[in-house]
Nucleic acid binder design. Structure first.
Lengths: 143, 143
DNA sequence: GCGAAATCGTTGCGATTGCAATGACAATAT
DNA sequence: ATATTGTCATTGCAATCGCAACGATTTCGC
């Protein structure tokens, strides 16, 4: 039997993820013109308070350079404050401004609404799906 | 309660997909130096015979330009043959050369092995996962 | 304490990407 | 038949991305 791309899990996962990301990006594009890296940085800052670029890099699966640039843009937009870390002067401390917090409250609601819709679409298999994602993501394949 | 990125389905899906794609790309990079678009074009040609750029575009979730460029590179590598369509001269007919078929036989095996490993990692939730992907992918959200 | 190695954020740069425009051809309407 | 509209693949271009320096700092080894 010949190989069939449509049955190939990595491919299907990739297509699904791209479609979902696109749908969600359309939602928050109406609210604020953010790129995906910007959205991720904002969202991470929202629940983790003050952190460094490296912290976000490790948690959020984004290249350092993207985070750095996203943070600069967000600062220019008045959503994020960048400042030097007290003890270690190599580090940059990132945190939301009050304006950034206000925006994230709205975006957080939008995100949760979207997820609710999504879970409804997915239906009863949602918990299994969630378990799979946990297993795939935490499986750090050291080489 | 504050929004948490780690619990957000689109984000987790995106991270999982990127990681899996990366793992798989490492596998076939050893076998042949292919980019992801090249791999997809090859894989699609493998099971669908002779088709046009547009056909692949519709089936494989890739921009026309990427397919066009991938096809050119694959032709230069001797894996794909490009020729004008008989009846409609706007179309370009793409098909694997015998060399391309030979390569895809090896790659198909690699892909299937990888998928088998992946399914083992996923475990009993695999069927549910598969159903979810079906539902997400086929849900073409017309706007 | 001092030099070497590691870490952090930024920047440069080549490669990749997605979108829009183009040119070639086909289908449709009049 | 001709003109208009639509479709197809390619190309150009701007934006994005990821990797690899790089300077600034800190940590480690001795």
């Amino acid at each position: 039997m010949t190989f069939h791309l449509d049955d190939f899990l990595p491919y299907r996962l990739s297509v699904a993820a791209a479609q979902i990301s696109r749908r969600f990006a359309a939602r928050y594009a109406e609210e604020a013109g953010l790129t995906i890296p910007e959205w991720r940085v904002l969202a991470h800052l929202n629940h983790s308070g003050t952190v460094s670029v490296r912290d976000i890099h490790n948690r959020v699966n984004l290249d350092k350079s993207m985070i750095s640039r996203a943070a600069t843009r967000l600062q220019e937009a008045g959503l994020v404050r960048k400042s030097g870390h007290e003890a270690d002067r190599r580090l940059v401390s990132l945190e939301l401004t009050s304006q950034g917090k206000t925006l994230m409250q709205r975006l957080g609601r939008i995100a949760e609404d979207f997820q609710t819709e999504l879970l409804a679409e997915i239906g009863e298999d949602a918990p299994a799906m969630s378990r799979v994602l946990d297993r795939l993501i935490t499986t750090q394949h050291m080489e």
